[in-house]
């Protein structure tokens, strides 16, 4: 699913110039001599896991009474995306300083939220139940990937973008999923964010590495 061209898409501010490889850059060396269907026997030496992941930085929201969530351009009606973004920002700033995280190891963004963006869901349900026009911006924030895209662009983090819901009920299970992304080779670090929209809203973020 990608944005149509005819509706102004939200643009997180600021969005730094992407540093991902341009189209002309080689993504990988082709191996023309490789067999069409590979032998799936033991062909590589396993890389050993170094055990539990290290915590590079932590953050939470709220941190104090009357803690406030900054708004994000293009996100409306619901505090869910600001909650995720602010908590992630605090964690990433603690480790990287201000964005972008230029030169950071490939970092996955993993968001776990058992009930998702209830503010957006409620706004949408109200509009459809009352026969009202649905705000177009709700389309963009109608799934949890959107705020992860905001974070990925702002911080220039191009690892996997993963959103999880019910069933990942404790920190250990989330760390296992993070470790799987790292050991599987798609990420070198993982930012794990948990977010629950209340009241009261609360969220945590932790940056993990082997």
């Amino acid at each position: 699913m990608t944005a149509p061209t005819s509706v102004p898409a939200p643009v997180p501010a600021p969005v730094p110039a992407p540093v991902a490889a341009p189209a002309s850059a080689p993504v990988a060396d082709p191996a023309p001599s490789a067999p069409p269907v590979p032998d799936v026997g033991p062909v590589a030496v396993p890389r050993l896991s170094a055990g539990p992941l290290r915590v590079l930085a932590r953050a939470r929201w709220p941190e104090r009474p009357a803690d406030e969530l900054p708004a994000i351009a293009g996100f409306v009606e619901s505090a869910f995306s600001p909650l995720v973004a602010e908590t992630a920002e605090r964690c990433l700033r603690a480790h990287h300083g201000p964005p972008p995280a230029t030169g950071a190891p490939r970092t996955a963004l993993l968001l776990a939220s058992p009930s998702g963006d209830t503010g957006t869901a409620d706004a949408l349900a109200r509009a459809t139940a009352n026969g009202q026009r649905v705000a177009p911006l709700l389309f963009f924030q109608s799934n949890p990937n959107a705020v992860l895209g905001h974070l990925a662009a702002r911080w220039q983090l191009d690892g996997p973008v993963v959103a999880l819901g019910p069933g990942f009920d404790d920190e250990r299970e989330l760390h296992e999923r993070a470790a799987l992304l790292i050991e599987d080779g798609d990420a070198e670090q993982v930012l794990v964010v948990t977010a629950v929209q209340g009241p009261p809203d609360h969220a945590t973020a932790v940056l993990l590495a082997p």
Binding site: P10, G74, F140, G159, D186
Partner: peptide
């Protein structure tokens, strides 16, 4: 494999 574009909230990287 799973990857990210690090480009935009909802638009794909044009390349």
């Amino acid at each position: 494999a799973r990857t990210g574009d690090a480009f935009h909230v909802c638009r794909p990287h044009p390349a």
